[in-house]
Design a binder for these strands. Sequence first.
DNA 1: CGAACCCTTGAGATCCTTCAATCCATGTGG
DNA 2: CCACATGGATTGAAGGATCTCAAGGGTTCG
Lengths: 234, 234
Amino acid sequence: MKQHHLHPNLEDENIALSPLFKHLTPEELDRINDDKTVSFYKKGTYIYHEGNRIAGIYVVLKGILKIFKTGIDGKEQIIRFAKPYELIAFRSVISGELACTTAKTLEDCVLSYIPQETLFHLVKTNGQFSLELLQLACRELGEANEYITDIAQKTVRERLAEILVHLKENFGLDNESALQISLTREELANIVGTATESVIRLLSEFKADKLIEINGRKIKILNYNLLRKIANFM
Amino acid sequence: MKQHHLHPNLEDENIALSPLFKHLTPEELDRINDDKTVSFYKKGTYIYHEGNRIAGIYVVLKGILKIFKTGIDGKEQIIRFAKPYELIAFRSVISGELACTTAKTLEDCVLSYIPQETLFHLVKTNGQFSLELLQLACRELGEANEYITDIAQKTVRERLAEILVHLKENFGLDNESALQISLTREELANIVGTATESVIRLLSEFKADKLIEINGRKIKILNYNLLRKIANFM
DNA sequence: CGAACCCTTGAGATCCTTCAATCCATGTGG
DNA sequence: CCACATGGATTGAAGGATCTCAAGGGTTCG
C-alpha cells in the first residue's frame, strides 16, 4: 500500500469501515488497498475545485469537509458536508463530468484516494457493489430534492432552525450539548442560502427565545423539540 | 409481451429507444419486453404519490410528466419534468425508500412499467448497464446541485428567465418559436419557487422588454440571448 | 348558463438584504 | 510587549424585492 507518512496514525484508519466497501471480497479489498493512497490534509485545504477533472474518488477517514458551489459574486453555496466513511468526488468521477463543486477541509483530515480505474472495475464486476453505489447516489438525490423544496418554500428562519437540527443529527452534540461541528456565521448563511447578518440576527432571536445558547462558534441546543417545530418539518 | 390495449399505437413505441437500454443484449431486451407492461394515461393522471412504495420504474414513451414534492400548505415544488425515453420512479425503487415525489401527467402519456425485480437483475448482472444507470443518477445529482444554488442565490427574475431558457433547451420551440411545453402560471411559479402573481408580473415585464410574447399559455421566445443574460448563468 | 379554473392587477405589509460602522479576538512583526 | 493588521461577529438604519390578500376578468366545458 502506497502511503504518505505525514501523519502518525494513518494505519489506524481502515477503508473497509465505510459501509460501501463492506461487502467486498478479500481479493477486491486487497486490490483497493494496493491502489489507494492515504493522505493528510490540513484544515482549510482545497481537495478539488469546481471545474476540475477528477481522476478518482476520496473516502474520508478523518475530519469534516464542506462541499460547495460558487455562485453569484463568488458567494458559496454549501451543498453538503462529508464526514468519516463518506465519499467525495464520486459524482463527477462516475458521470465523467467536470467537478460541479469544490471540496475544502473544515478540520485536519485524512482522506483515502481511490483511482477511477479501480472504482470502475469494481462497478462493472461486482453487481452488489454497483447497486450499493447506486443506492448511495439515489439517497443523495432524495436529500437534494428535499433541500430544493425547503429553500424554495421555507422562510430563512425555518431553514436556519432546520439546519441546526440537521447539524445535530449528522454531527451530534458534545458533553455540553453543543454542536460538534464548528462553523462560521458566514458558513451557516451559505448553507441556509441567506446573508450572514440574517443568520446573526436569527441566532440572537433563537437565543432570546431560549432555543439555543451561543458562545462564539459554540452553539448549545437548549430546546431541540421547539427547534424542530420552528423548522416546520412536513 | 403483456400490454394494455388502450391506445392504438402502443406498438410503435420501443423501449430500446431509451439510451439507457441501448447496450443490452437481445436476451436482456427480450426479458424486459416480457416483463414490462405498457399503458396509456390521460392528461392529469397521477402515476404515483409522494409516500407510496413503488414496485417498479416507468419509462416514458410518449408525453410529458411533472415530478414534484408537496411542501408547506400543499404548495407544489416541481423538481423536474420527464419526457419520452426518460425514467421516472427509479430513485425510490433503487434506494428502496418511499417515493419522495409525486408524478402527474401534463399531457396524454404512454408509459412502460418495468418491475423492480427485472431492474435489479439487470443491475447485478450487467456492469455496463449499472454504470449507465449510475451515470444517470449522478448527472441528475449535478443538476439538483445547480438548482439548489440557483434558488438560494438568484432573484426570482433571474430564475424565471433561467427556467424559460431551460424549457426551450429541453422541450424546444414550435414553428412560431413558442415553447412546446404548456404550463400554467402556477406551475411556472412552482418551478421557480415563487408566488403565481410574481410570475405573472415578471412575464409582463419580459413582454414589455420584448424578450417574449405571451398568448395565454403560449410563450414565444423573442430574444433568447438577452434572456440568457438576465438568467445570469455563471 | 353557471361552475371551475386560470389569469391579471392593485395595495399594503414584511421579510430580507445591503451598506456602514464598530467591536472583538487573534496573531505577527518590530 | 506594544501596535497594528486581519478576519469574524454584531448592530443599526434604510430600501427593495417579493408575498399576501382581495377583487375582478376571461375561458372552457358540461
